[in-house]
């Protein structure tokens, strides 16, 4: 049974639409029932779902392993925050500027890498090198706070100001929910259109793709630019939600790795994998930390060790992630 009419849902069967609708309704009501702690975790889940989706465009769809996506998060965060702090420009306009800057960075890195045929592991290293280079550079930019950090004026919590993104966590929750839903819809649209077919062809075999008339360089560039553009708003959100930015943190390689865990654990190249991965990973890790806290153990690093083991187990036993087998069990399309 196919549902026609709504172009966004085209091609989904009734079962999938029902499950998606239930999930969305559930997420819409989270702030009504959740306390501040649970809400903060759900914000984190959706943040990773969003940024994982953005990274997945590059790796999952087009097959280009970037381990430097913290670069685009950081650039997005700093551009919007700097505009806000220094020029009083709000985050929605700031986000456009952030996306422009991140896209430019993605285009430059992509151009250099793809023109000079830097592929595979070398490409991954190149992305790390650019992110680290930028991190150290920002450490020395004193007008952006340097290594001492850039701080946004903290909100007056009388009234939510959506235009300036100053307000309580509930507002941030709905913003990131909107972002995650938009990203999912956008990626679904991309995956089903010409560009998605071309990206997958390039991911599977660039030589064969070229022989089918696909301009590989152009479509790799588009993947790099789309992915970096999508990643930047995550940085804007991060800046306005946490109100402080340190190059050491936001550009760090650990951040880059953290944001790829969701899609890998959920299922590379699938649409729902990044969402599922973000849910499973964040919630399990927080539950673990809670459990340890009630036992009175305060061990720094344990959450990351847990992440590491999750990643290890998934890559060894479920190299395609947890979504494909789950989707088959639910009778849904894997993609």
């Amino acid at each position: 049974m196919r549902i026609a009419g709504l172009p966004l849902l085209a091609g989904l069967d009734r079962r999938a639409v029902t499950l998606l609708a239930l999930l969305l309704i559930g997420l819409l009501f989270v702030p009504a029932v959740a306390g501040p702690y649970l809400l903060s975790i759900m914000i984190l889940v959706l943040y990773f779902a969003y940024v994982g989706q953005a990274w997945n465009v590059m790796m999952g769809m087009a097959g280009q392993l970037s381990l430097g996506h913290s670069l685009y998060v950081g650039l997005g965060a700093y551009v919007a925050a700097a505009l806000f702090v220094h020029a009083g420009i709000g985050p929605w306009i700031g986000a456009l500027a952030a996306m422009a800057v991140a896209t430019l960075a993605g285009a430059v890195i992509g151009y250099l890498a793809f023109r000079f045929r830097v592929g595979g592991v070398y490409f991954a290293l190149l992305t790390i090198a650019f992110a680290e280079f930028t991190r150290i550079g920002f450490d020395h930019m004193t007008w952006l706070g340097g290594s001492a950090g850039l701080f946004l004026p903290v909100a007056q919590r009388e009234r939510n100001d959506l235009w300036s993104l100053r307000g309580d966590p509930v507002m941030f929750y709905y913003v990131i929910l909107g972002m995650a839903v938009t990203a999912l819809a956008l990626c679904r649209h991309l995956a089903r259109s010409r560009i998605g077919f071309y990206w997958r062809a390039i991911r599977e075999d660039p030589v064969a793709a070229e022989a089918l008339g696909i301009d590989v360089f152009r479509y790799k560039m588009l993947a790099a630019m789309a992915s970096s553009a999508m990643t930047a708003p995550a940085g804007v959100f991060f800046a306005f939600y946490y109100n402080n930015l340190f190059p050491e943190q936001i550009f760090s390689m650990l951040r880059s790795i953290e944001l790829i865990l969701g899609p890998i654990i959920g299922g590379l190249g699938t649409l729902f994998g990044p969402v599922l991965g973000a849910f499973v990973l964040t919630i399990l890790a927080e539950a673990l930390q809670e459990a340890l806290q009630t036992l009175g153990w305060q061990i720094p690093g344990i959450k990351q060790v847990f992440y590491g083991f999750c990643l290890l187990l998934v890559i060894v036993f479920l190299p395609n992630g947890i979504w494909p087998p789950l989707a088959r069990r639910l009778g849904l399309d894997v993609r």
């Binding site: 790796m59 392993l65 381990l67 595979g120 592991v121 991954a124 790795i257 790829i260 890998i264 061990i299 720094p300 690093g301 344990i302 959450k303 990351q304 060790v305 992440y307 590491g308 083991f309 990643l311 290890l312 890559i315 060894v316 190299p319």
Partner: peptide, 20 residues
């Protein structure tokens, strides 16, 4: 990329294991 991710996982465990 699978090899790479496997070793990234090993690296994460090592760094944070040492931290613990």
């Amino acid at each position: 990329h699978s090899q790479f991710i496997l070793l990234v996982a090993v690296a994460i465990i090592m760094v944070n294991g040492l931290l613990m």
